[in-house]
Design a protein around this nucleic acid. Structure first.
Lengths: 349, 349
DNA sequence: TTGTAAGCGTTATCAG
DNA sequence: CTGATAACGCTTACAA
């Protein structure tokens, strides 16, 4: 490795002058400046950033701690963080929690031992209102930006999140504007703040339209395709006939659609199916859905902006970004008789 | 930040003794050992890894340079790299090329300025047999493991890759074993080594079965869904009636399937459609496909193993890993009259 | 078992 | 404009 010292020796100048020349300090003779730069380039000099950091006390390092990169949501976020971080002169250190609190704690410590200037964290969910590692971060004054929703143990750190309530409300309004009046809701787990917000958005849109919320139209459905399929089964068994379904997410929506398609329903002619497009890119699916997409890239950009605020020593507030309604398929108006092909009542199954 | 110095002051010992105690050197009095450790824990000491690295000349840092994390293939690879790297004591620095050679070069230099001990690179494709940045890496003796196939300008670095030829051959053999004799092949761009290998695998399987390769069954189809759809259109227009299609990848396969399904063909009853499952998890699609999956996780593990070999100063050879045949839907034997519903010949369109 | 001196590559500071 | 010196936090090498 070529060091400043080597360039100094070859140029007959001191290390200090070389350092200055290379950093473009203004109090170096232009001639020397050029000579040194040429020499450095020729010798293939690459500065040692950590040695510099040791002296200047800024490492130019940011840590990112996410459940897994294989989750497209976090991949998009990470891409945005890396691009914008790099533009601002920061390198990114990546670590995973795999949704395990022990891994989260040890990896946070590892990142701290690299002297990262800030941390982007997607906290592992806990029921407890306190988490030692987050107390530790507070105590140290570590700059933290949370990716996603708050939890009690980390409520004091700024965060970026999707406005799920608003997104959900938009979706319901869209269906209402098409004339749908019997909209089933396939809800996610009640403990999840996102799920709660989405249900609330649905409720509020109905109320704002002067309609009562019919609890028989609300099904518990989890977050997986299989959950959506199950909920659709229940819906059929209970003889509920909505003209539209609004699902917790696109996977649930697809699960539901699969079941209905298998029973001969047509989508979106017989029923409009909608959901949040968080997990998979619904565009590739053959099931016609209208979705609300997480503004993933914008979330990443916002997170980096918050971090830069923190690094400047400012006080920053978390941000809520509206989701993007991607209207693709639920444009059909409700039919007089939805769900055409159903077992004849005489069958007595 | 708590430093060794602070602990030394509080304990009345020297920095050196504290350092030794914390690292568990055996020539420290057990009593001191315990006392120091307790004190360090209490004070929340976290060692400064880069300062240590400055002295010991190992940074414990590895760099990863990929096109984008949002590509699930690289996300899986990255996950494996991070997990196994961390277990071996390495932290990962992430950077993107976005398939741009300029970004690739500047980001490689950035990673080098962090004094990474090794680099995992997915080279940006070039036609030129030489690339200055790779020459530079060679010159410096940087430890490099390539992710994916070689190109002329980086042929001397060890790599990990999927054995596409073998995977493709497996797929064709599978179709042959079901009795298919007219298997269309939707090929990727000829310049891509992966595409060339897959075509060759198909050819070889046919030859090994004593069958001639019928060039009319081979279509140029690119790598996107739209390419598959176009190729399927051409196939229909040319009146070719295969009993199976083997596609460059799952997207192409899905594109083809969409067109055929729209024309009333049933999959896999009327035709078996297969492809490499590199890009998207075909399981979620409603199109029944049989795929060959990249052994992504294993590729990551292998890459880390190669890197560790390099770090130990060993000479390492690249590795070719066989893909995994995921037989899901192309289990149907060919029908006497494939592609049932087609325009009546009298129509004269 | 513990301490002292020196150095890793870089930059802040002050002197010339 | 350039040089000399010290320091960042840690560890190697050697001395006590």
């Amino acid at each position: 490795m070529v060091r400043l010292k080597d360039i100094a020796a070859r140029s007959g100048l001191t290390v200090m002058t070389v350092s200055r020349a290379l950093r473009g300090a203004k109090d170096v003779a232009p001639a020397t400046q050029l000579r040194i730069r040429a020499l450095a380039a020729e010798m293939g000099y690459v500065p040692d950033v950590s040695a510099r950091g040791l002296r200047t006390r800024n490492t130019g390092l940011l840590g990112v701690l996410i459940p897994t990169v294989t989750d497209p949501l976090y991949a998009r976020l990470l891409l945005a963080l890396e691009e914008h971080g790099r533009a601002a002169g920061y390198d990114l250190l990546l670590a995973h929690t795999l949704r395990q609190t022990e891994l989260e704690a040890t990896n946070i410590l590892r990142l701290l031992s690299r002297r990262v200037e800030g941390l982007f964290l997607r906290p592992v969910y806990r029921f407890s209102p306190e988490a030692p590692i987050y107390a530790e971060l507070r105590r140290r004054g570590t700059r933290v930006v949370l990716l996603g929703h708050h939890a009690p143990f980390c409520a004091d750190f700024p965060n970026v999140e999707t406005d799920d309530l608003d997104g959900s409300r938009q979706l319901t309004r869209h269906l209402l504007s098409l004339g749908h009046r019997r909209i089933a809701f396939f809800a996610g787990p009640a403990v999840s703040p996102a799920a709660a917000e989405r249900l609330e958005g649905y409720r509020r849109a109905l109320q704002e339209a002067g309609m009562a919320v019919d609890d028989r139209l609300v099904f518990n459905a989890g977050v997986e395709m299989a959950d959506g399929a199950q909920a659709a089964q229940r819906l059929l068994e209970e003889g509920i006939e909505p003209t539209a379904i609004q699902a917790m997410n696109d996977l649930v929506a697809i699960g539901a659609a699969n079941v209905l398609l298998a029973r001969g329903w047509r989508v979106p002619e017989d029923i409009s199916i909608t959901g949040f497009g968080n997990i998979l890119t619904s565009e590739h699916f053959r099931v016609p859905l209208t979705t609300v997409r997480q503004p993933k890239h914008r979330l990443g950009v916002a997170a980096m902006e918050l971090m830069q605020g923190l690094l400047r020593g400012e006080h920053v507030e978390g941000r809520r970004l509206a989701g993007e309604l991607a209207i693709r398929a639920s444009t059909a108006r409700p039919r007089a008789t939805p769900g055409l092909p159903r077992p004849a009542p005489a069958q007595g199954v």
